[in-house]
Every structure is written in C-alpha cells, then in structure tokens.
Design a protein around this nucleic acid. Structure first.
Ligand SMILES: [Zn+2]
Ligand SMILES: [Zn+2]
Ligand SMILES: [Zn+2]
Ligand SMILES: [Zn+2]
Lengths: 140, 140
DNA sequence: TGTAAACCTTATAGTAGCTATAAGGTCAAG
DNA sequence: CTTGACCTTATAGCTACTATAAGGTTTACA
C-alpha cells in the first residue's frame, strides 16, 4: 500500500502524512525497492487515529500525547479521560469567544441603517464613539 | 505620543502596531528628531478601529477593506453592512464546527470508564472501532 | 515500443498574524 | 554617570499544514 492509497483510506493528504512523519508524529515508514513508502494495516489504524484526533480539535502536540497513550498497553483510562476533558474545556472557551464575536457582530448589524448614506453606525461603533469625529481633526 | 503610549491606549502591542505599518494596514507614522514614531489623536482612532475589528474576528485583509470604508467619506452604509453580515456567517460556521467537536468530545468522555484500567473507549473510538485490534498484528 | 498520465521522491517556500530575539541607539531619573 | 525604560531595525519562530520545483517510477494504452 503506497502513500496515496493510505491517504485515501485515512482521509489525510499525502503531504500531511509526510509532514507527520517528518515531525516524528508517525514512525518512519518502511520503503519499497523503489524508495516508495509502504504501509500496512497497523499504519491505517494509526493514521485514522490521528485524523480523528485532529478533527475534534487536538493540536499536534496533544496528538503526540494521545498517540503515546494509544501505543502504551499500560496506560490508564483515566489519563486519556483527563486529556479529553481538558480539550473539551479548551473548545468551550473557543466557542465562548466566538459567541462574543457573534453577539457584537449582530448588534453592529442591527444598528446599521443599511442604505446609500455615508453615515454608518458600524463604522462609528468600531472607531469607538468618542472618536467619531475621526478624520481631518488632529489633536496632538 | 510614542508607540508605547499609543499601544497602551489602543490595546494593541507595539509589535503589532509596527507589523500593521509594515504590511500597509497603517500609514507610515511620522518620526521625531530621534527617529521615534510619533502619534496623535487621529492615529488613536485608527488603532482602536483596527483593534475592535480584529477582536470581532475580521482578518487583516477584511480590516483593510473596513479601513478603506472608514476613511472614505463617500462610502455607503450598505457596503459596510454587507461586510459585517458576511463575517457573521463566517463566525457562525466556525461556531458550528466547534460545536461538532464539543459534541464528539462529550460523547467520548461519557463512554470512558475513567479508571485505572488500560482498556479505554476513547482510544478505541478514535482508532475507529474496526481497528481496535491495533497493535502487533500487521496485515499487509 | 513509445509515451503520457499518474504516481512517487526530496527540499524549500509560503500561508496568517503576530511574538520573540538580537543588537543596537535614546532618554529620564537618581 | 550609570541604570533602566524606552525606542529602532532585521530576522527567526510559532501552528499545521499547502504549494511549488525538479526530478524518478510505474502503469496504461495506442
Ligand atoms: Zn451602517
Ligand atoms: Zn478558531
Ligand atoms: Zn449552533
Ligand atoms: Zn477511557
């Protein structure tokens, strides 16, 4: 199985797979006589594992920790649990930041007259109302 | 007013301000006799504007468009409105992606026994259940 | 058999939006 | 007069890849 084939079954790109190998997230693949990387079933599982982890938001570094647990038969379920619970908190924080942005954007949109005029509540609001006398009047 | 002072009032870092100038998002600042950048009221408004725009999620490129509108007295409110409405859609898409991650992470956490054992539903699930016979049994 | 497409290889540069570092010059306080 | 807080530029680093260049290999098919 060459890199293109395993890319298709794992859902990663060939470039990503080579990149993971380069940074040591994956072990160096075996090579065929022609120098091509050769993969087998155990590699498929590893790649799918990484793909899934990335998809739910784990960073490369966190994926490295997950991989260590994945490959350690003496791991404890609780260690894995803690890692995932941490990630959940991170994702929720990220969601809250974006929800704040969404709220502000909605408010801006509501305030805007959305017409042909130059005056715009969005512009005024972003500039900070105090600075709405913005152009041409410098006070050093 | 030097760069440190305007950084404090605008909420940007000095490095970010110099970076914005370098990429042309800000006009080149005037310089004092010593070569230091010198800022005035009009610059404060511009920096606060950029800071606010970045805070609600606009990219540098979108900030450039917003800045053009901000500085164009013949702009139309509707143009600004469209830009912000677009950004709102982008932010909502980002939120939905993260909500998906959150859902999957929650499911993983619920399935995990969270104890001292090596068997872990999270590991199994990430590897794709079909690959749960993962280590040591290669089939090419 | 020739050749063109579809693979594979490496190395390097680019993306976004900064932050950090190095190696200096300037200014205000004690 | 020295210490520390500023300021300057240029350059490298960060994340997680993607894109490009410049090749070598394999497969298909006319
Ligand atoms: Zn408007
Ligand atoms: Zn995000
Ligand atoms: Zn939603
Ligand atoms: Zn578990």
């Amino acid at each position: 199985m060459n890199i293109g084939a395993i890319a298709r079954v794992s859902g990663l790109t060939t470039e990503a797979i080579r990149y993971y190998e380069g940074i040591g997230l994956l072990p160096a693949a075996k090579r065929g006589a022609n120098g091509y990387r050769v993969y087998s079933g155990v590699d498929i599982a590893r790649l799918i594992f990484l793909r899934q982890a990335r998809k739910v938001g784990f960073t490369i570094d966190q994926c490295r920790q997950l991989r260590n647990l994945y490959e350690n038969p003496r791991r404890k379920s609780a260690t894995v649990h803690a890692l995932v619970a941490n990630k959940l908190v991170e994702v929720e924080q990220h969601i809250h930041e974006l929800e704040n942005m969404r709220r502000v954007l909605s408010e801006l949109i509501s305030a805007c007259s959305n017409d042909e005029q130059a005056g715009c509540a969005i512009i005024d609001s972003l500039a900070g109302s105090a600075a709405s006398d913005h152009l041409g009047k410098a006070k050093t």
